[in-house]
Nucleic acid binder design. Structure first.
Length: 575
RNA sequence: GCCCCUGUAGCUCAAUGGACAGAGCAGUAGCCUUCUAAGCUAUUGGCUGUGAGUUCGAAUCUCACCAGGGGCGCCA
């Protein structure tokens, strides 16, 4: 800046510093293309590339080598400032070790946010397609919490609807008195699929289902009692699965509880002139584009109540959105992790609430994600039988991981092997759902899901294990904080640089709701560690080198553990 | 008809508007008396769907088109 002023050059609005994008080199860089381009526009006859390099060189000469930096160079229009590696290395390693499990954690923002995710339907199976919302939502909540937000995790099971009535009908007519044994959710799903099949084969039986729905509407005690009992079975099954997945919730909302409240909200909308009551010929609708004066259709029409007066999903969503802010008045954001097909629906609901005058409506946000399909772009649907049940996937992943650990490390105790198999199997399941854009379809196939090599969670866990193994061999306390006096190898510099990125990437991932950034960083850090592991002996190195490297290994282990924790993946002590 | 998402190596995916577009898998050739080989090294593989535009600079932003997927008044 000073140099520009002195030399009568156009001042850049701000200097954008970026990391030098070469591995093994560590520092910051900026470019001079903008200034050169500005000059060109002002009529000076300059060739932008060459002029940028000229400026970079001039500034490099002007700067000399500022304190804290090792050297400064001008390359192809870029000005690169290389850190004084020993000092920065010490700072990063010390920081990681001092803050330990909190390394990467952001400052407390004094803001409360809610993440609603998972929304499983009771009386149905839990398949791999449902897994994405559970894992994505869980990790978003972990990231937001770690980034410094007070985070409320909410679940919203669909515990009433036609699917439940169908299930109850099938149970009452064919399974009365039966109870689920193990794999509750799979059993519930089986009965639901059976109900769908029966009704498909004998459409005349629909009348019985309708009659049962009417009994539910009257709150017939027998139906209500059976619903309550069987609903609890499903919820119990879900709790067991969440436990295995290490996914937890602070708050449960049920759509059965929002039904009446939703109807009251609709009454209010009608009274305010927002909703149009076309009953009995039509439904109760909100003509959003008309209300907003939009020329082109954008929000279209939201149906908020059926013509027969019964509630829809939208009815309940209106009530739920309100309920969340009643329960948590401080909420600065209310996130909905729901698949992308419901984007329009949520835009409509939030816009309707805004029109109704709820001041927080703009703080609701839908976080869309794409589906998990089967090869050939086949959508998972219980009715079609095109599903991979979560129970089956977990069982397969665990047993496959157990096989591998038996082979790799036969001397461990059976208990240890079980724990490792769980950690590895679960990691292998979660990672592929996190290491891609939310808006990209995940194609599930067994082979890829059970491949423990390459860019996958086990690779990252293995790096952790290797670091752990070195430190275990040494035992005792780490050497005291120190600045490395020897010349660090490129592998060491690259590793330290990656360790330093965690805090920044946590913020970025939380702001953009993209676990992908953490998944990538964790993998890259593990890769850098393996590189280091192969090139830089630790235990056999000279005393001073050994001491610093031990600290570096401990820091790497910590950073990897922290990013795995952010992804809800366990770091095993051995593998 | 309108709107949204996706299109990058044979396959699955990365890449704050910046420096030679990178990984994994698959293929090929190697590395275990040395901190765990679930690892590492080397090598093969690309007009980033097409065409314009903006910019000093585009996989990235804008527009048009092509291809695939999804959503659009009483399903959830």
């Amino acid at each position: 800046m000073a140099y520009c002023r002195e030399n009568d050059l156009p001042l850049p609005e701000q200097i954008n510093w970026a990391w030098i994008p070469f591995s093994g080199h560590w520092g910051i860089s900026t470019s001079f293309f903008q200034i050169a381009a500005q000059e060109a526009r002002q009529g000076k006859k300059v060739q932008v590339g060459a002029r940028a390099q000229e400026l970079a060189q001039a500034v490099a000469d002007h700067l000399g080598t500022p304190p804290g930096f090792e050297r400064v160079e001008a390359v192809r229009g870029y000005l690169n400032l290389y850190f004084l590696t020993p000092e920065y290395s010490r700072r990063v390693v010390d920081d990681v070790l001092d803050r330990a499990a909190d390394y990467g954690r952001g400052e407390d923002r004094h803001e409360q946010v809610m993440v609603e995710f998972s929304q499983p339907n009771t009386h149905k199976a839990f398949h791999v397609g449902h897994l994405r919302s559970a894992i994505l939502g869980d990790v978003l909540a972990r990231m937001l919490d770690f980034a410094g937000y007070e985070t409320v995790r909410a679940n919203y099971p669909g515990d009433m609807g036609l699917h439940v009535i169908k299930w109850l009908w099938n149970y009452m007519t064919h399974h009365r008195g039966e109870r689920p044994e193990t794999d509750i959710t799979a059993w519930m799903g089986k009965l639901y699929a059976e109900a769908s099949k029966r009704l498909e084969e004998h459409p005349e039986l629909e009348a019985e289902v309708r009659a049962l729905y009417a009994r539910w509407d009257r709150r017939d005690p027998e139906v209500v009692a059976l619903w309550e009992e069987t609903r609890e079975w499903s919820l119990q099954g879900f709790r067991a699965l969440y436990e295995v997945l290490d996914v937890h919730f602070d708050r449960y909302y049920f759509n059965s509880q929002e039904e009446q409240a939703g109807k009251r909200v609709v009454e209010e909308l009608i009274a305010k002139g927002i909703a149009l009551d076309e009953r009995p010929e039509g439904a109760v609708i909100v003509k959003l584009d008309e209300l907003l004066g939009n020329e082109k259709e954008k929000y279209r029409v939201l149906v908020v109540l059926r013509s027969d007066g019964t509630a829809l999903y939208a009815t309940e969503d209106l009530a739920l959105a309100i309920q969340k802010f009643v329960d948590y008045p401080r909420l600065s954001r209310s996130f909905y992790v729901v698949d992308v097909r419901q984007s329009l629906h949520f835009q409509q609901v939030f816009k309707t609430l805004e029109l109704a005058g709820y001041p927080w409506a703009g703080r609701c946000e839908h976080i869309p994600y794409e589906l998990v399909n089967l090869p050939g772009n086949v959508v998972m649907a219980s009715r079609e039988g095109t599903v991979v049940l979560l129970e089956d996937l977990i069982r397969e992943a665990f047993s496959r991981a157990l096989e591998v650990v038996e082979q790799k490390n036969p001397d461990l105790s059976a208990e240890q092997k079980q724990a490792i198999a769980r950690a590895v199997g679960l990691g292998a399941i979660k990672y592929p759902m996190l290491a891609r854009e939310n808006t990209k379809i995940v194609t599930f196939d067994w082979q890829a899901a059970l491949d423990f090599n390459g860019q996958a969670a086990p690779y990252i866990q293995y790096a952790y294990v290797r670091a752990n193994s070195i430190l275990r061999k040494v035992g005792g306390a780490l050497p005291a904080a120190m600045t490395p006096e020897y010349e660090l190898s490129p592998a060491e510099v690259a590793l330290i640089e990656l360790l330093s990125r965690l805090p920044n990437d946590v913020q970025r991932a939380a702001e953009e709701k993209r676990p992908l950034y953490i998944a990538n960083l964790a993998y890259e850090t593990a890769k850098a560690f393996n590189d280091f592991y192969n090139q830089c002996p630790v235990l056999t190195a000279d005393a001073e080198v050994r001491s610093f490297r031990l600290r570096l290994v401990a820091a790497a282990r910590q950073a990897i553990a922290n990013s795995l924790a952010l992804m809800g993946i366990t770091a095993p002590e051995a593998m």
